Computed example of a mutant assay.
Amino acid sequence: MGVVVLGAGGKLGQLLQPIYPGAATWLTRADVDVLNSAALTQVLAGADAVICLAGVTNTSTQPMALNTTLARAVLDAAATAQAGRVILFSSAAVYGHTPSPLHEDGPAAPVAPYGFAKLEMEEMATAHPHPNVTIRLGNVAGADAILGNWKPGFTLDTFEDGTTPRRSYIGPNTLARVIHDLTRADTVPDLINVAAPGAVEMGALLEAANLAWEIRPATEHTIANVTLDTARLEQVTTFHPQDSTAAGIVADWRAAKAAQ
């Protein structure tokens, strides 16, 4: 049957669908209610892999616990339907203020409800008998707070030395390729960081995109560096040097926008 993608109506799903490199069935909430077990089991019957984008974001007014509820529903239905591997989406937010580089086997120390909710979802998935892999996703260009939410007068935390926060990023096309590879790999770790290797300054991304921004003094709460260790991911997929540069990430984002 191929790959089934759930939650295709969200920001990430809309970004990825036109550029996904393989055949897939993209389903929104209007197509199937993830909490309707009978309907979900029917659409997942015989699927080679299931990509679950359905979830609650950190800006949602819905209960954060719904992340675990939705993920469990998908895993249960996949098991009943005898579907293949399920890919779930967690977040780098589970690491909190843990010093970088951030490895999957290192400590998770979330500081906000979203991070705690995603960690709870991870723990449920680890205990679930159906094959699954949970992605700890870094920032996705275009679905982020910088490129995706830019508007005139945009401000960015800046440190005294003039630098801006460094974050692990990934372009939409690169992410689509990575997810496709994760659906096809013979073996995949249960938990895996997903971002391009290294990190980029947020200010450098805005400059590469020719988007003006204003300095906002960093505070004691500003995290200077969030760099995901991608060694585990690099055993499954291949990256190119430009995937990790501000210019390359912006070019990837613009190509994805043009495809929409």
Rank of each mutant, 00 (worst) to 15 (best):
G106R: 06
M124T: 12
H97V: 13
P99V: 07
A117G: 13
P107A: 11
M121C: 03
A108S: 13
P110A: 07
A109C: 10
K118E: 04
A117E: 01
G115M: 07
H103Q: 12
P113T: 07
A109I: 05
A127K: 15
A109D: 11
D105S: 11
M121Y: 05
P113G: 10
P110W: 05
A117L: 07
A109K: 12
A117W: 00
P101T: 00
L119C: 10
E123H: 14
Y114R: 06
E123D: 09
K118H: 03
E104I: 11
A117K: 01
P113N: 09
H103F: 11
A127I: 09
A109L: 12
T98L: 08
E120M: 11
G96R: 05
E123R: 15
V111M: 13
A117R: 06
E122C: 00
E120L: 12
T126Q: 14
P110L: 08
L119R: 13
G106T: 06
E120H: 12
E120Q: 15
A108N: 12
E120C: 10
Y114L: 03
A108T: 15
A117C: 08
A108L: 14
F116T: 13
M121L: 07
T98R: 03
L119V: 10
P110D: 01
T126E: 12
L119I: 09
P99N: 02
K118F: 00
M124F: 13
A108G: 09
A127C: 10
V111L: 14
E120I: 09
H103T: 14
L102V: 04
E122H: 04
Y114M: 05
L119T: 08
P107S: 08
S100N: 06
G115P: 08
A112H: 14
E122F: 01
L102I: 00
K118I: 02
G96M: 09
G115E: 02
D105Q: 11
E104A: 06
Y114K: 05
L102Q: 00
L119H: 11
V111W: 11
Y114T: 01
G115W: 04
E122Y: 00
A127E: 12
A108C: 15
K118L: 05
K118V: 02
H103G: 09
E104N: 02
H103D: 12
P99G: 01
P113E: 08
A112P: 04
E122V: 02
P113W: 08
M124N: 06
G106M: 08
A125P: 02
A108R: 14
S100E: 03
K118Q: 09
M121T: 00
V111I: 15
Y114V: 00
A117H: 01
A112T: 14
A125V: 03
A109S: 11
H97F: 13
H103M: 09
P99M: 08
H97S: 14
P99R: 05
D105T: 12
P99C: 07
S100Q: 04
F116K: 14
A112E: 15
G96E: 09
P107R: 10
P99W: 08
P107F: 10
E104L: 03
M121F: 03
G115D: 03
P113C: 10
P101G: 01
H97M: 12
M124G: 03
L102E: 04
S100W: 07
E122R: 00
G106I: 10
P110N: 04
K118W: 06
A109N: 10
M121R: 05
Y114A: 00
T126N: 09
E122S: 04
E123S: 13
E123P: 00
H97A: 15
